[in-house]
Amino acid sequence: MGRIGLAFKLFFGVLFNSNTALQMQTALLPAPAAKEPEKKTAAKPQPPAAPAGLDALVLLATLQREARFLDLFQEDLESFDDAQIGAAVRDVQRDTKKVLARLFAIEALRTEEEGANIELPESIKPHEIRLTGNVGNDTPASGKLAHHGWKATKCEIPKFQGNLETAKVIAPAEIEIV
């Protein structure tokens, strides 16, 4: 007879006690599906996750090694005229572009000509389109493309086998043995 007693107890409990009602409501929710037993695969041990920031250092090292990126941006431009800077930048730009193409395959996000009027969808993704100028509450039907945006079509930073401390050496000192 215990179940009939319990049923009455719960019936009145739910009726007069909000706490009990809440508990019951929760108890009546569909139970989550039982987790499938984890597959025991002979997967290779995953390498430990790279420490935060390692990729950024490896990218800087790659740009310096292949394009003299840091040498250019760390230099004080005060004492040089534009032609002199231009000559050096041409080479650094050429090689930087090559690295970026290889690692990120960067493309324009919008294919339309800059300056053209382009139609906008009703709801825009804020990470893809940033409205500037007269921005109201509603998205307008069209606008002028001021910048086509950029996107990486891949992201393949070289894998670094050292640790964060060694990665902080972006470029080693070079010593010539004569």
Binding site: D71, L72, E75, L77, S79, Q84, A87, A88, R90, V92
Partner: peptide
């Protein structure tokens, strides 16, 4: 076509 050789050390522009 201009062809440059960049400065050897970290002083890139000055040595170009």
């Amino acid at each position: 076509h201009s062809i440059s050789v960049l400065g050897r050390g970290s002083k890139l522009i000055g040595g170009t």
